[in-house]
Write a protein that binds this DNA or RNA. Structure first.
Length: 271
DNA sequence: TTCAGCCTGTCG
DNA sequence: CGACAGGCTGAA
């Protein structure tokens, strides 16, 4: 799914097209899904008629801010927010969950696997609501980054996946980051040297910035706010490439499981 | 820290 | 048919 670069790309797309747009009506396509989040058609009355003031992202959570309310999305593995999607004549409309009808266009929330989430809450509760995840990966200072990693007893891969220390990296960008920084996914946070941590920090920023510039990675389902694919996947070095030669040393990349997630790395380059 | 579970789909 | 897929939770 959308990790930080993908959610940031969607945020920018929606910001550009929908800032100031008035929400006319909300249409629920899948009541059963919305019911999981205790939402039904009438609950959206509080934001209907209000302008979308701005958008906010922390980690993989994207919030649309209306007056005193926040509509918060998490896209899970296959969620998408698409502006003015072409009306598909027959097939995959059954993945549609919600449409927000604005005066300037319609925004569709769809999700094939339905691991996505949606919450409607008061804007004043947003900081606390997002408080269970750590600082956004592009916001954290090098000092905080170092402090968090050097206290982490578990494996470094788990550190990035958990979201509670630093928010935004998922399986793709964690594998890519650890390769770029030449660090084994099995290493424990508190065993990393200061230089290694600094290298990780710098590579993390570069990786995420480059990925955003490429409008994110589309492996299979991800599309941006306009329904188009990203292209950072062509620059992946290890993710999904187990068995292929390492781009640096030609050793075959290995695949293992860490924290229940497929993990690809170079057993030679990553120490 | 591991595991099933939440869902649906693709690939071999 | 089984394995796997950009995530995350709650329970053992």
């Amino acid at each position: 799914m959308p990790e930080l670069p993908e959610v940031e790309t969607i945020k920018r797309d929606l910001e550009k097209e929908l800032t100031g747009a008035v929400l006319k009506r909300v249409i629920i396509h899948n009541e059963k899904f919305l019911k999981r989040y205790h939402l039904s058609e009438g609950d959206f009355k509080v934001i209907e008629g209000k302008p979308l003031e701005n958008l906010h992202r922390k980690g993989k959570f994207l919030s649309l801010l209306f007056d005193s309310k926040a509509l918060v999305f998490h896209l899970g593995l296959t969620g998408a927010l698409i502006l003015n999607p072409a009306v598909s004549q027959s097939s995959h409309q059954h993945h549609d969950l919600l449409t927000l009808l604005f005066d300037k266009g319609r925004l569709l929330f769809k999700d094939l696997r339905k691991f996505g989430k949606v919450f409607l809450l008061s804007r004043k509760d947003l900081p606390e609501f997002l408080g269970h995840i750590g600082t956004d990966a592009l916001e954290i200072s090098p000092e905080d980054f170092k402090r968090l990693i050097s206290h982490h007893r578990g494996r470094i891969k788990e550190f990035f996946l958990s979201q509670k220390h630093i928010a935004g990296l998922g399986n793709i960008y964690t594998d890519e980051l650890l390769f770029r920084a030449r660090i084994s996914p099995f290493r424990r946070g508190l065993d990393l040297s200061e230089e290694e941590i600094l290298k990780l920090y710098q590579e993390m920023r570069t990786l995420l910035t480059e990925a955003i510039a490429s409008r994110g990675s589309s492996i299979r389902d991800y599309v941006d706010g306009e329904g188009k694919r990203g292209h950072f996947q062509v620059r992946h070095l290890v993710y999904g490439k187990a068995g292929s030669p390492c781009p640096i040393c030609q050793t075959p990349l290995k695949r293992t499981i860490i924290a229940q997630r497929g993990t690809t790395y170079c057993p030679n380059c990553q120490k």
